[in-house]
C-alpha cells in the first residue's frame, strides 16, 4: 500500500483541520464574505441608478433603471465573491508554511498533496457559503433571474470550478510568499479582473486597449456565460471559451502549487 492510496482520507483529515481553523478564527472568513455583499450594495444603490441608464444593458429596452442594473451586475458580484474568497487560500497556506507542523506532515507517510487539497476544498466550501449569501441578498434587492434548475446548477458548477481553479493559483501564491502580508497582497490582481471585464459595465464603453484586454481575459467569457444562464442573454461561444479557461487555470494552478509545495522546505 502506498501513501497515495490514502489520498482521499488524508485530504479529508486536512479539510477538517482547515474548517476547524476557519471556525475558530472566523475573522478572515467573515471579511471575505462581507466584501462581495458590500460590493453588491454599493453597485446597486450607489452606482445603480446612474449606470442603469448609462450603459447598454443587454435585454433592457431603452434606458435601463436600477432594477435592470441589479440584474446586470449580480453575475459579476458572484465572480467577486469567488475572487475575494480565493485570497484567503493564499493567506491560510502561507501562514501554515510558517508553522513547524508542515514539516511534521512532510516527515509522515501521508499523501503529499493532501495539505493543499485541504486548503483548496476548504476554500471552495467557504466560497459556496459566500455565494449563497450574495444570491439571497441580491434577490432581496431586486435581482430577477429567469433561470430554471438546470441553468442554476450549470451556473453554480461554473462558479465552483472557478473557485477551485483560483484556490489552486492562490495556494501557489501563498507558497511563494515569504510572509502572510505578502500572501494577502499577491492574489489582489485577481480581484480586479472582474472589474476589467464585463462585470460592472459593458466593455464597449472602455477605451480601445482596455476594451481589447476586457474582451480576451478569462473573466469576461465566464461572466457572460453566467449572465446567459441566469438571465437568458446570448451565450454563444462564451461557454466553450469559459470551459477552456477553467480547465487551463485549474491545471496551471494545480501544477504550480504542487511544484511550489515540493520546493518549499522550511530551513
Amino acid at each position: 500500500m502506498s501513501a497515495d492510496s490514502y489520498a482521499v482520507r488524508d485530504s479529508m483529515t486536512m479539510l477538517r483541520r482547515n474548517l476547524k481553523h476557519a471556525r475558530r478564527y472566523p475573522s478572515m472568513t467573515i471579511s471575505v464574505i462581507a466584501m462581495p455583499l458590500l460590493m453588491l450594495l454599493l453597485f446597486v444603490y450607489v452606482f445603480g441608478g446612474a449606470l442603469g441608464g448609462g450603459i447598454d444593458i443587454p435585454g433592457a429596452t431603452g434606458g435601463g433603471d436600477r432594477g435592470d442594473y441589479t440584474n446586470y451586475v449580480t453575475p459579476g458580484i458572484l465572480l467577486m465573491a469567488v475572487t475575494s474568497a480565493a485570497i484567503s487560500t493564499a493567506v491560510s497556506v502561507c501562514s501554515d508554511m510558517t508553522e513547524g507542523i508542515i514539516n511534521r506532515f512532510r516527515t509522515m507517510a501521508i499523501s503529499r498533496s493532501s495539505v493543499l487539497v485541504g486548503h483548496v476544498v476548504g476554500n471552495v466550501i467557504r466560497t459556496l457559503i459566500s455565494l449563497s449569501l450574495v444570491i439571497v441578498v441580491a434577490l432581496a434587492v431586486g435581482f430577477r433571474p429567469d433561470a430554471g434548475a438546470v441553468e442554476w446548477l450549470a451556473a453554480l458548477g461554473i462558479l465552483v470550478a472557478l473557485a477551485f481553479a483560483l484556490a489552486w493559483i492562490s495556494a501557489a501564491m501563498g507558497l511563494g510568499s515569504q510572509s502572510v502580508e505578502t500572501a494577502s497582497n499577491a492574489p489582489m490582481p485577481l480581484t480586479f479582473l472582474p472589474f476589467l471585464g464585463s462585470a460592472v459595465v459593458t466593455p464597449d464603453t472602455m477605451p480601445d486597449g482596455l476594451r481589447w484586454f476586457a474582451e480576451y481575459q478569462p473573466f469576461t467569457p465566464i461572466n457572460e456565460t453566467l449572465r446567459g444562464l441566469l438571465l437568458g442573454t446570448e451565450i454563444g461561444n462564451d461557454a466553450w471559451i469559459s470551459l477552456a479557461w477553467l480547465l487551463g487555470l485549474s491545471a496551471v494552478g494545480y501544477f504550480w502549487a504542487k511544484a511550489s509545495f515540493a520546493r518549499t522546505v522550511k530551513r
Binding site: 501513501a3 483541520r17 476547524k20 481553523h21 475558530r24 478564527y25 508553522e99 513547524g100 507542523i101 514539516n103 511534521r104 516527515t107 509522515m108 507517510a109
Partner: peptide
C-alpha cells in the same frame, strides 16, 4: 516516514488546535 518521528527545534504543533 512510516518508521520515524521527528521533533524539531521549532515545535511542530498546530497552534489553532
Amino acid at each position: 516516514r512510516s518508521a520515524i518521528g521527528v521533533t524539531g527545534q521549532f515545535a511542530a504543533v498546530d497552534d489553532l488546535l
